[in-house]
């Protein structure tokens, strides 16, 4: 199938990719070097491919690249400050040991970021519900839940 152009905003910058209709957003991003977006199951199950689409967390393996025409995509690369400083959500994961191998981390961080935008002070249950679609094979989740709570504190201090 012939390639088509898709124009969108990636981490605040306008970009144009050439993709086939069947190319998922996950594959398109990775092909263009955005490798924080991880390719896990490609079946919508694991959440390692999470991105924010117009601020809403979705699994990029379930989105066709052509569908993001005119829209805005945020990945973990986009959370890092211009000075290279980690975003408070990322910092919290580092401090609280929410990371072991790191494969799930970009997705976890993005879902956490979206959760805290919507609900700055989530309960334990709300955290679990929000992260139910992001699987981690290493940490056993307790470190991750701690990281989310820490991130909420850091963001509050910042505000």
């Amino acid at each position: 199938m012939t390639k088509r152009e898709v124009h969108f905003t990636l981490n605040g910058r306008s970009v144009t990719y050439e993709v086939e209709p069947r190319t998922t957003l996950l594959r398109a991003l990775r092909h263009h070097g955005v490798t924080s977006v991880k390719r896990g199951c490609e079946e919508g199950e694991c959440g390692t491919c999470t991105v924010l689409l117009d601020g809403v967390p979705v699994k990029s393996c379930t989105v066709l690249a052509l569908e993001v025409e005119g829209r805005s995509v945020l990945t973990a690369e986009g959370l890092v400050g211009k000075d290279g400083k980690l975003h408070p959500v990322q910092q919290a994961f580092v401090e609280e040991g929410g990371i072991q191998c790191g494969f799930c981390t970009p997705g976890m961080v993005l879902t956490t970021y979206a959760l805290l935008k919507k609900n700055p002070d989530p309960s334990e249950d709300e955290i679990r519900l929000a992260l139910a679609g992001n699987l981690c094979r290493c940490t056993g989740y307790t470190g991750i839940f701690r990281s989310v709570k820490r991130a909420a504190e850091l963001l509050k201090d910042q505000a």
Partner: peptide
Amino acid sequence: HSDWLIRNR
């Protein structure tokens, strides 16, 4: 149904 991220689609 599924999880938050899938429910968003």
